[in-house]
Simulated assay, not measured.
Amino acid sequence: MSASDPVANLQTLIRCPSVTPAEGGALSTLEAMLVPLGFAVERIVASEPGMPDIENLYARLGTDGPHLMFAGHTDVVPPGDETSWRHPPFAAEIDAGELFGRGAVDMKGGIACFVAAVARHIEEHDPPKGSISFLITGDEEGPAVNGTEKLLKWAAEKGERWDACLVGEPTNPDVLGDMIKIGRRGSVSGKVTVFGVQGHAAYPHLADNPVRSLLPLAAALMDEPFDTGTPEFPASNLEVTSIDVGNPATNVIPAKAGFAFNIRFNDTWTAETLKAEIIRRLDKAATASPLRPGRAPARYEIVWAERPSHVFLTRNNGLIASLSGAVEEVTGRVPALSTTGGTSDARFIKDYCPVVEFGLVGQTMHMVDERVALADLETLTQIYGTFLSRWFDNALLS
Rank of each mutant, 00 (worst) to 15 (best):
P6I: 13
T20H: 12
P21R: 07
L27Y: 04
S28P: 09
L34P: 05
F39P: 09
E42A: 15
E42I: 13
S47L: 11
P49H: 05
G50W: 06
D53E: 14
I54N: 12
Y58V: 12
A59L: 11
G65E: 09
H67E: 00
P79F: 00
P79Q: 05
F90R: 01
E93N: 08
A96R: 14
G101F: 02
R102S: 03
A104T: 09
V105G: 00
G110M: 09
F114K: 10
H121E: 08
G130Q: 02
G138V: 05
K150Q: 15
L151P: 00
R161H: 11
V175L: 13
M179V: 15
I180M: 01
R184L: 04
R185E: 02
A202M: 09
Y203C: 10
P216H: 03
L217I: 02
A219W: 10
A220N: 05
M222I: 11
F233M: 10
A235N: 10
S236Q: 07
S236Y: 05
E239Q: 13
S242F: 08
I243R: 07
I253V: 15
F259E: 00
F265D: 00
T270R: 10
K284W: 12
A288R: 11
P290E: 02
P308A: 08
T314D: 11
S324G: 09
A326W: 04
E329L: 12
G332C: 13
T340K: 10
Y352T: 07
V355D: 06
G359L: 10
D376N: 12
D376R: 04
D376H: 03
L377Y: 02
T379Y: 06
L388W: 06
D393N: 15
